[in-house]
């Protein structure tokens, strides 16, 4: 499994756990998890993938990444 595919897989896996808590809890839950545990290069790569259309991302995960990207200061 190579990079964006693997990160998309990981992000969707996180999304799956939060799914049963409902959309309103899931989106911030997913965003918080990725913020806390992913190294900057992983975040940069998934945001780049998101910007490129975000193929494969589940809707809640896509929403979480979009909000996370906006909340973080722009990376150099």
């Amino acid at each position: 499994m190579s990079s964006p595919d693997r990160l998309v897989y990981m992000a969707n896996q996180i999304g799956t756990f939060f799914r049963s808590q409902g959309h309103d809890k899931a989106v911030p839950g997913i965003a918080d998890h990725i913020k806390k545990f992913w190294d900057p290069r992983m975040k940069r790569a998934i945001f780049a993938h998101l910007d490129a259309g975000g193929v494969g991302l589940e809707p809640d995960v896509r929403e979480a990444l979009t909000s996370l990207k906006q909340s973080l200061p722009a990376t150099p």
Binding site: K36, W38, D39, P40, R41, M42
Partner: peptide, 8 residues
């Protein structure tokens, strides 16, 4: 910023 985990 958090760092990399072993598999990462």
């Amino acid at each position: 910023e958090p760092g990399l985990r072993i598999p990462n």
